[in-house]
Design a protein around this nucleic acid. Structure first.
Length: 269
DNA sequence: ACCCAGGGTAACT
DNA sequence: AGTTACCATGGG
């Protein structure tokens, strides 16, 4: 069956190519395909939203949550318009949604992201899935923590993840061993969730913020990568604007997209 | 050959 | 508490 996602103006390109997820791609037919954890989905962009192609009805609540259909982004963008730079960035990306991704997949993905570029992150993750994920008709699922915890550095060598290999193993083992309880972080506040994630070797402030934002939807997280550092140094020397409120993470994603697209052509304030 | 990429750690002041 | 070399890998 095909189902509409009716969440205003969901834009798949802005959402799926924005560097918050790494396993979606646009096919020859213009449709998007990808996985979230073990679940496969195909989507087609429409004028006002997206159509889920061939999804099982019992999976619809999962996908509606994944695409964050319950959040009023128009209201957030209205709030952001008090800051001129943020107004430009958010109006250009008003179809962008902060996904609610699988915690373990998000954790491993952003461990891989450190000191790395997006095309190579995608490549390492694809090899990770091909090597350790379950094969389905549509492709490979993201591997479970249990499967990765049984591997060693030698087994990870084909990924060419470099120094990140031992971080991946530490994460998988602490999750399986119960030392890091990913399921509990939903109910924790931002600081407690961050402390829980930073128990893992190779998870610092930035990776933890990405997981808190892109998996647990803790929108007060403000991941500061090299791009955001430049933007803050240029536009927000004296601190972030009040109008970001408790949605600093959403603002961060609008700014990331905006400046990554326009590069040097920074607009005047 | 050099610099950079959705950084973190350890070893320094 | 704040800096800095180093960490693998690949693309420009």
């Amino acid at each position: 069956m095909d189902f509409y996602i009716k969440t205003g103006c969901l834009d798949l390109a802005q959402t799926l190519e924005g560097g918050q997820c790494f396993r979606w791609r646009r096919g020859e037919d213009g449709c998007w395909t990808g996985f979230s954890g073990p679940r496969f989905l195909k989507l087609r962009q429409e004028r006002d939203g997206a159509v889920l192609l061939g999804a099982a009805e019992e999976d619809m609540p999962y996908w509606e949550n994944y695409f964050d259909c319950g959040t009023d982004y128009e209201a957030v963008i209205r709030q952001f318009s008090a800051d001129e730079t943020l107004r430009l960035a958010s109006e250009e990306n008003k179809g962008l949604r902060i996904l609610r991704q699988e915690p373990f997949e998000t954790l491993i993905s952003f461990i891989i992201s450190q000191n790395n570029n997006i095309p190579r992150i995608r490549g390492i993750i694809e090899r990770l899935c091909e090597t350790f994920g379950e094969r389905t008709d549509a492709g490979f699922a993201f591997p479970s923590a249990e499967r990765l915890a049984r591997a060693d550095e030698e087994a990870l060598a084909p990924l060419r993840a470099g120094f990140r290999a031992r971080y991946i193993l530490d994460a998988a083992r602490k999750v399986v061993g119960g030392e890091v309880r990913l399921g509990e972080i939903y109910g924790m506040d931002y600081e407690a969730g961050k402390a829980e994630l930073k128990k893992i070797v190779g998870v610092g402030d930035k990776v933890a913020d990405c997981v808190l934002l892109f998996a647990y939807h803790k929108t007060e997280a403000f991941p500061t990568d090299v791009w955001i550092k430049r933007i803050v140094a240029e536009y927000y020397k004296d601190g972030l604007p009040e109008c970001m409120g408790c949605y600093k993470g959403i603002a961060q994603q609008y700014l990331f997209e905006y400046f990554r697209k326009h590069g040097d052509k920074l607009p005047e304030r």
